[in-house]
Amino acid sequence: MNGLAETVAHTLAPGLLYPTGGAILFALGLYGLIRRHHLVLRILALNIMGSGVFMVLLGVAARGEGAPDPVAQALTLTGIVVAVSATAFALALVVHLTRLTGHAVMLPGPPDDDAPVEDISREAHHADGGPAESSAGEDRSA
């Protein structure tokens, strides 16, 4: 009984609780990255994965007695600034892609993976415009 209480107390210490939460966030972001098609949502998923990594780093740094590891904290600090500038660049790319193709949704691949490469290039679908493809993007992914 005593051992159980000790295990629970050990498990609930921030040094173990937060890394676990970070791992869950990472897996969640990975899941969202695979499942969602809108590029802005995918960027959000990448950011959530990154936050999971930061949480793991900081949680491991805060383990044990005494002050937390300053090197891990400094790395996380650089990581946050890099993440925000990468996000800004990615969003600029999404805006540019939308201006070129008219949509910001990454379409799922064709049903059979052996299809020739030309079929996957969607720009031809969307570049010329016309009623036939009026909502091809939405219909295919719906």
Binding site: P14, Y18, G21, F54, M55, L58, G59, A61, A62, A67, P68, Q73, T76, L77, I80
Partner: peptide, 10 residues
């Protein structure tokens, strides 16, 4: 969460 992990800088 960063506050709880003793990382006020972050």
């Amino acid at each position: 969460a960063w506050v709880r992990l003793e990382a006020p800088d972050i």
